[in-house]
């Protein structure tokens, strides 16, 4: 990897001035599980790396009147095992879906949300939009078995790599972004964006900001939630398709539903048609399957990823059935 200057601030006041005003100058290091690989591959070549692990205010999970504050430095293992997270099965299951204990010990909540896409064109240096010399995307004409089936009108075809985002969005979570001019709160559903040009990124974070907290709103613990991932391997692997659901049940019927798909689109993909199909219905094989069907209605598979449509359809169905089960029995990922 390219040599860089290293900073290890002890407070937000020290950290924020160390960040650059343009992308590419400075990178934020926390768990390092994604950043170090990107630097070794020369996909990112920062002049300065700012290690934020010394920022104590970014640690820990605490309850407040507005909801649960999860620090960006909380590790995936802490998230999986912490007592408060038992109220949010979708989130604990999503953390458990990262099946390497080593990655869960190192990787953080903030890092999971801010990790760069796994798209192999991006990782090989062709940029986020994977264009050739003539400006055409390499994805539709090339190997695209792991690329998007939804939200893929171009020029972006990568899939959002976050394990936690679908569950957090289903639970209505927001992110707190801190910069030198203060903090701002962004609903996680609006945090991720589909880039339309080379100048854009896959989220709204600015180069001089740090994602410091994720907040699950008060009341979300009442929701019946679950995450179902389909992965090729039981060992460490990114999912091929994920569905996270959060249901508000009244007398055995769905009062409201949030359904979010992961790893099928450049952003965590909401499924409003599937949500509507469940209104006033009980959750059973038939209604869950119908919701799965509705969730993939708009899918436009590429030449090599038609199989992902069925995976997404089934992930929605199984997540719904898991969410409707008594809380002690969770959804199980893996194939």
């Amino acid at each position: 990897m390219q040599a860089f200057e290293y900073a290890h601030p002890r407070s937000m006041t020290e950290a924020l001035p160390l960040l650059g005003s343009r992308w590419g100058e400075t990178e934020i290091l926390a768990g390092g599980t994604d950043l170090l690989s990107l630097m070794k591959n020369y996909v990112v070549t920062p002049k300065r790396v700012v290690n934020i692990k010394g920022l104590r205010e970014l640690r820990g999970i605490r309850g407040t009147p507005e909801g649960i504050y999860i620090g960006a430095l909380v590790t995936l293992e802490e998230l999986r095992t912490s007592q408060p997270m038992h109220e949010y099965p979708a989130l604990a299951q999503a953390a458990a879906g990262v099946t390497s204990p080593q990655i869960r010990n190192m990787g953080t909540v903030g890092g999971d949300l801010c990790q760069r896409p796994r798209c192999w064109y991006f990782r090989s240096g062709f940029g986020l939009l994977a264009r050739d010399e003539s400006g055409r995307s390499l994805v539709p004409q090339g190997e695209n078995r792991y690329h998007a089936i939804l939200g893929n009108d171009g020029p972006a075809y990568f899939v959002n790599p976050s394990s936690l985002a679908p569950a957090l969005i289903a639970l209505g979570a927001k992110a707190r972004l801190d910069g030198q001019n203060g903090e701002r709160y962004v609903a996680l559903a609006e945090f991720f964006v589909i880039p339309k040009s080379d100048a854009e990124r896959e989220n709204v974070l600015q180069p001089n900001e740090i994602l410091t907290h994720v907040i699950i709103p008060e009341g979300a613990w009442e929701l019946s939630s679950a995450t179902y991932e389909v992965r090729q391997k039981e060992a460490l692997d990114w999912p091929l398709a994920t569905a996270a659901v959060a249901l508000k049940m009244q007398a055995g019927k769905v009062a409201s539903a949030r359904i979010v798909l992961g790893h099928v689109a450049p952003i965590p993909w909401p499924a409003p048609e599937a949500e509507k199909s469940l209104a006033g219905q009980p959750i059973n094989e038939a209604t869950a399957a119908r919701a799965g069907e509705a969730a993939v209605q708009g899918a436009k598979p590429l030449s090599g990823n038609r199989y992902k449509v069925q995976l997404a359809r089934v992930a929605v169905k199984r997540a719904l059935l898991a969410a409707a089960r008594p809380r002690s029995i969770g959804a199980k990922g893996g194939v």
């Binding site: 040599a3 860089f4 200057e5 900073a7 290890h8 002890r10 160390l18 300065r48």
Partner: peptide
């Protein structure tokens, strides 16, 4: 390493 960076040496 706190307020300014160290390295790249």
């Amino acid at each position: 390493a706190g307020r300014r960076g160290i390295g790249p040496g």
